[in-house]
Nucleic acid binder design. Sequence first.
DNA 1: AGCAAAAATTGAATCGATCCAACGAAAATA
DNA 2: TATTTTCGTTGGATCGATTCAATTTTTGCT
Lengths: 358, 358
Amino acid sequence: MASLTAGNRRPVRLADIAKAAGVSHGTASNVFSRPEIVREEVRERVRAAAEAMGYGGPDPKGRLLRAGKVNAIGVATAEPLSYFFDDPFARVMMAGISQACDATGAGISLVSAANNEQLAWNIQSALVDGFIVFCIEGGSRLVELARERKLPFVALDLDSEDGSVAAIGVDNIAGAGVAARHLTDLGHRRFAVMALPFADNRTGLVSAEQVRAATYAGTRDRLTGYFRELSRVGVDISKVPVYETANDVASTKAGLEIIFASDTPPTAILAMSDRIALVALDWLSARGLSVPDDVSIVGFDGVPEAAVSEPPLTTIAQPIAEMGRLAVRAILESNGPVSRHQLPVELIVRASSASPRD
Amino acid sequence: MASLTAGNRRPVRLADIAKAAGVSHGTASNVFSRPEIVREEVRERVRAAAEAMGYGGPDPKGRLLRAGKVNAIGVATAEPLSYFFDDPFARVMMAGISQACDATGAGISLVSAANNEQLAWNIQSALVDGFIVFCIEGGSRLVELARERKLPFVALDLDSEDGSVAAIGVDNIAGAGVAARHLTDLGHRRFAVMALPFADNRTGLVSAEQVRAATYAGTRDRLTGYFRELSRVGVDISKVPVYETANDVASTKAGLEIIFASDTPPTAILAMSDRIALVALDWLSARGLSVPDDVSIVGFDGVPEAAVSEPPLTTIAQPIAEMGRLAVRAILESNGPVSRHQLPVELIVRASSASPRD
DNA sequence: AGCAAAAATTGAATCGATCCAACGAAAATA
DNA sequence: TATTTTCGTTGGATCGATTCAATTTTTGCT
């Protein structure tokens, strides 16, 4: 009566119960997969044998090999697994992915590890029909690993400039342009950019050279979008500080510290993610600066949290859930040519942006 | 040059490249799994053949059968997949599960479906080493399904009274008692209980009889805890309305509507989940009732949202993440006797509870 | 060169199922 | 009763790898 639940040894296979029931393994298999084609008497005999021997039904491990399809898609990141449940952007994305998977009956496998080696192994050994790759930090490495599996996969965020990988993303240049335009229209002329990573494991003020060498095309594109608009209204972009964060609290605060140490601090902040923008909101309020009276902020992403911050955040909303849904469909119907989708973004004006005071 | 990424036909197996490289499949296998034991020259030859033929490494589907272990644990619910990313309780739980999985290198498979039949199939065919079963609505069915797989599994929430299933939960009776005690100490004597489901697919005011017939022991235990304390201070528990919600917005509001239609509305609400409590907060404020001046509320669970509500919610906090971590460990080290853990809860006093006005 | 020990390689067996062509028995038709 | 259909059952082949005892090759030593 001790450990019945937990599986001790369980060497009971379909073949065992077939023998016990006195039928061939072919028939035994049919009892489980197409019960209607086997005579009732035999069916019951086999079922009884299964019951008696504690057989838990055909082992999916065995079936899998023959069937070929796992019926699950893998979602990969180079972050700890908890990223999927902690990060607002990831959560909305996963909600979209979930919807599409529910609709088709596919399962979801979370394939992820912060550790490089572990990550490689996890991707190599993931039992999935395809991958959806979150191209955040470590994206290029991840895409490479996924590609090596030779399974269908799609990259989220058109970070990759490599046209041979399927990808789903937004027009970062245009989106950033709209964000900047919103602020220039309000009359702002003194800006700072709080950027996403241009390359792995680095933070700090960024030189034009570093931008050119960016690993992450998406980050560079957003900056291009910002600068294009700022130039248009005559702002000297070489004077606009660009601080590269790791999209986390610590580096963002460090960046703000530096930027607001200036004699002529910005009246407007262009944040490349809502995450950064929300941290900035906190930091500014702690610092006694009012948003939007002293400083305006525009974020990027459109996560739900941005709608309920204090003050609510003006941002460039991506159709995050829709991107997730599209990604699943791209995997499951992966035929035809490599699909690259570019979805529209939308400026959502809330209370974090207003005309500058002076 | 069209669809290179997506897998067209890929009948290239380890055996193929072995033949191409002129070695046995045993050696070819070693090249990938224990490269150090094969002579460099041979190793390179095999690698080159693999590269040339577009071989993506040993197929985990094949390896799996031999290895026996999937190295992933399944998390099961009878909800749509998006539940994992939407529900606050689930998210904290998943964060705990993630941590433990990260630490051991195990993957996570989300096994879930609202549809009954789909759910059964998903559980039967899930490629996992064990299940963690979320015993929310539909929990009993789920436990049954999981048990049939004859894999290690642990139920979250000691809902099941069946001592043969491993389970992790809190002392619901004691927790509910503490919640009630907090309110009676403040001087409250007029109560209403907003309950979790006692059985599937039913909402409304609950009779003592229905409580006795409850499918969900956890719900019944919490009610027992509440009533035990209320009785202690002389409240007539037969007069305390108990409204069974589906732990969602609609049924909770419907219940409040009924409860506050009374001539002698309660001065304190005992909510069996933070979710319910938070909805109540909204509803009361919309109704022009002040919390805690007009009505006090105590929740149950201790989800993060409870700390930032308006007003912040007094609640009975479960060690949610810790429960998740324990569950993973229970699966992975599933040996020895069936483990049943009962974790302590903690009263967290915030601004939603105060002495009654009169 | 000759022999023993060490290293590399082979190939059959195995993991647990599903599929399917072939076959035997029962039912329908002539 | 003979002949054709239909239905149920069988058992070998297959999915794609890993493992390991046996064998061959290489290395080391005298």
